Amino acid sequence: MQYKYITNYKNNDILRKSFNELTEKTYSFNFVEWFQNGFWDENYIPYSLADGEKIIANVSVNKMDFMLDGAEKRYIQIGTVMTDKAYGGQGLSRYLMEKVIEEYVNKVDGIYLFANDQVLNFYPKFGFIKKKEYQYSKLVDVKNDKQILHINMTDSINRIKFLETAKNCANNERFSMHNFGLIAFITTGPMINNIYYCPVEDAYVVADIKEGELLIHQIISLHRVNLDSIINSFGNTIGKVYLGFTPYDSEGYEINEYYEEDCTLFCLGKDFENIDKRKLMFPTLSHA
């Protein structure tokens, strides 16, 4: 390999800047504010190839702690897979995938990723198997007016309170993820305008509302909440609810196979062999 293999270089200003430039060029976002805010922790590790001090290819590892039906799980999620177009066709992503899998396959309960539709034939080459996810939804007839409060996350006090809760969040799903850095990245970035507070349950809710439909991505609180109470707090304009997680109690919910463009789940490891039968959904906020 003519290029330098490097990893875990978040504190190297030059390499981090180059990494962010390639991320911006590839995915139209970057990790600049995330790093500056102190959210880039030891759970996010880029595995890269560099030409001098220029990052030309990358496969990132996200260390993910999960609880699945009461059992602790340690997974690795692969993300930010990219190669500079000027260096394409040299097998650089393959090289990095092999390095990551070799390092972690015997250290964790499983490895997973969400693939773009253009590369669905790439990941099976490494033993990954396409898996199904299932989404829970139901029609609702809410009688009360709206009680939920929208949170302005640009206000520093609101932001601190929310992030402190997220850091110590209780489980409110059958399949729950604990990765504060990732939650902070999403809720202070792409979903900064999707944060609500439910006074009745003393809980934050990350949600989308559109034309009478409510998508609850995650409930963030210090205790177990009543999910129906959370739903009702959004008021009588809501007619249908979709969950971005797997609820403890599925009674009354429709369970349908889930599909999202450019978001196909691939898994590697014995822990995932029968995951389809459990009718699970990886929390939408766990997508790196």
Rank of each mutant, 00 (worst) to 15 (best):
Y9P: 04
E251S: 14
Y5H: 14
L182M: 14
A184W: 11
L49D: 09
A115N: 09
L163C: 11
F272D: 00
E251L: 08
I6F: 12
I195W: 06
R174S: 12
N168T: 11
Q218S: 14
D51T: 06
H150V: 11
F31H: 15
N171W: 00
C263I: 02
Q147A: 14
L285I: 14
E53V: 08
L215F: 15
A57Y: 06
V100K: 04
Y258L: 14
L120R: 06
E21F: 02
S286K: 02
F185W: 15
G252T: 02
G181E: 06
N179G: 08
S93A: 15
S221T: 00
A86G: 07
Y136M: 01
S176G: 13
Y134D: 00
E21W: 01
E103Y: 10
N116V: 12
G52S: 06
K132Q: 08
N236C: 14
T165S: 12
I275G: 01
R159L: 12
E164P: 06
M1R: 09
L68P: 01
Y9F: 15
P283W: 01
D141N: 15
M97N: 05
Q218I: 02
G244V: 07
E98L: 10
G244W: 04
T83G: 00
V59M: 06
G79R: 11
N12T: 00
E201I: 05
G127F: 00
N226M: 01
E53T: 12
K73H: 09
I195Y: 05
K54D: 04
L182C: 14
